[in-house]
């Protein structure tokens, strides 16, 4: 019985990593460039867009789950893809939650880059695109932070993950949803143990991200 349990735990942990990793990467790939553009370009409505982005930090995860559920339910517009109750749906729901975070933190990070850096770079003859890329590289520490916070959001997510994933044994169970299941059944010690596993796994990821962040991109 103990052996069976740890076999499951490995699978659940790997799925947690997979779902959270994909959502973080997707959310960063969308949010970081978006944040750089919003942060560096001048346009009408920029202030409003920033406020909306920051407001979404507080977007309730259960609503994200519900939105994805409605979209991909058989009765919904994208039901025929059959994504509901698969890890893909979980990734999508978590990506929605990550995007405001990565966007917002990137906006602040690029704004923080010294104005004279931006002007120097421009005076050296960059195209607008080259300017943005260089400023982003100068803001590297902040950008990795954005990804870190995105990952933290994902690995801790339970409500949306349960709703669109269904917590199906062997298919869509991640550490957080299993913790919820075990807690519901009163197996508090086991749930705490899984919580510890989650923290250890997260620590490994953050260690790697921290190395990435401190790496001098010389």
């Amino acid at each position: 019985m103990a052996l069976e349990v740890s076999y499951d735990v490995i699978q659940v942990t790997l799925l947690s990593l997979y779902v959270s990793g994909c959502a973080t990467i997707l959310g960063s790939a969308i949010g970081i460039p978006l944040g750089a553009l919003i942060g560096l370009k001048e346009f009408g409505g920029k202030g409003l867009l920033k406020t909306i982005t920051y407001t979404m930090y507080g977007f309730p995860p259960v609503v994200s789950g519900l939105a994805i559920y409605y979209l991909f339910s058989r009765a919904g517009p994208l039901g025929s893809f059959g994504i509901l109750f698969t890890p893909t749906a979980m990734i999508l729901a978590e990506t929605l939650l990550v995007i405001p975070l990565t966007t917002g933190i990137t906006i602040a990070s690029v704004a923080e880059v010294d104005r004279s850096v931006k002007e120097t770079v421009k005076s050296l003859g960059t195209t607008p695109r080259q300017s943005v890329l260089t400023v982003m590289r100068e803001a590297w520490v902040g950008l990795v932070m954005a990804a870190m916070i995105g990952f933290g959001r994902c690995i801790a997510e339970v409500g949306a993950a349960y709703m669109v994933g269904g917590n199906i044994k062997g298919e869509t169970r991640v550490l957080t949803t299993v913790i919820m299941l075990e807690t519901r059944q009163g197996h508090f010690d086991y749930a705490l143990g899984l919580g510890l596993v989650l923290i250890v796994v997260a620590m490994a990821v953050f260690f790697f991200l921290r190395l990435l962040q401190e790496k001098e991109l010389l």
Binding site: Y7, I10, Q11, L14, L15, L17, Y18, G21, C22, I25, P87, G170, E171
Partner: peptide, 13 residues
């Protein structure tokens, strides 16, 4: 790493 996790997670299913 992601690919391996995904594969492993699905293979164990």
């Amino acid at each position: 790493i992601l690919a391996v996790s995904a594969a492993a997670a699905f293979v164990l299913t």
